[in-house]
Simulated assay, not measured.
Amino acid sequence: MNSRRRFLIAAVVVVISGVMSVLAAPELPARMATHWNAAGQPDGTMSKPVALALFPVLSAVLLVVFAAIPRIDPLRENIASFRPVYDWFVVVFTVFMTVIHGGVIAFNLGYEFDFTLLVLTAVAGLFYYVGVLLTHAERNWFIGIRTPWTLSSNEVWDRTHRLGGRLFKLTAIISLVGLFFGDYAVYFLIVPALLTAGVTVVYSYYLYEQIEHGTGSDSVKLP
């Protein structure tokens, strides 16, 4: 399967999101619940037209951006080396957006479920695939853990992304465990995610300093 077909799958998912809006519109209230607190209770609303258009339009715009990135990145040849994994990330992302959109519609149609748990489950799946993407990503300007130190060294990039990939997968697993802890479930996502972000930034700086002081391999710097 080539890249064009994978993006076609993503486009079909976005279209499905829009069709869901059109089909559900007549049965939905004028104002729809669109925000929930950690306890799963709705605490924010939007007008129906805005709520129904938000996810499909945002997904379509982001799909165009995702399609452009491999063409405009100065290091596009590096993206080509992991293009299938990148393309499937785009598919996974559009599915994620559609699942959340479907959840919003279902809730406003009167179906009873914990919306926060739906979001946490969907985010866990997305985070796990982000971990897969990071372990394959080569140095580029748009995709991955882009710190001054990863962008300045191939070795720092590779080692930081290997660690980041494992941490994102671990965050996904911890998030799923958190589903059994009720109102505290959201913290099983937020805390590991923040720690992952902090650890990878600090680790990339540490590696770069080690290499610059001659205790690691030679760095390969951007022009």
Rank of each mutant, 00 (worst) to 15 (best):
L120H: 00
E112T: 15
P74W: 03
L62I: 12
D87H: 02
S81H: 04
G103Y: 14
V92D: 12
V85K: 14
F96E: 13
F115P: 12
T98H: 09
F113Q: 13
Y111F: 14
T121I: 12
F66E: 09
Y86V: 06
V57N: 02
N108G: 06
L118Y: 03
V50R: 04
I100F: 08
E77D: 03
F82G: 07
F66I: 06
N78H: 13
V64G: 01
F89M: 05
P84K: 03
L118N: 05
M97I: 11
R83E: 03
V90A: 05
A67R: 04
F96V: 13
D87L: 12
V61K: 03
F107V: 11
H101L: 07
V65T: 02
L75S: 14
P84F: 02
T121L: 14
F93M: 04
P84D: 11
E112R: 14
T116L: 13
F113R: 14
G102C: 10
G110L: 14
S59L: 01
L118Q: 11
I105Y: 01
D73Y: 05
P56H: 01
V85F: 00
P84V: 00
N108Q: 12
W88I: 15
L120A: 07
R71Q: 09
V99E: 13
Y111Q: 15
N78M: 09
L109P: 10
L62M: 08
V95A: 06
V85W: 00
N78F: 00
D114I: 02
F107P: 10
F89Y: 07
F96L: 12
G110D: 14
L54Y: 01
A68D: 07
A53F: 00
G110K: 12
P56A: 08
A67T: 09
I105K: 09
L117H: 15
R71Y: 11
L75Q: 06
L62V: 07
F55M: 13
A60S: 01
R83C: 06
V99W: 14
E112A: 13
G110A: 05
L54E: 08
V90F: 06
N78E: 11
E77W: 08
A60T: 03
V95E: 01
V99Q: 04
L54Q: 02
L118I: 13
W88Q: 14
V65W: 00
V61R: 11
Y86T: 05
A53R: 04
S81Y: 03
Y111W: 14
A53T: 05
G103T: 11
T94H: 07
T116H: 05
A51K: 10
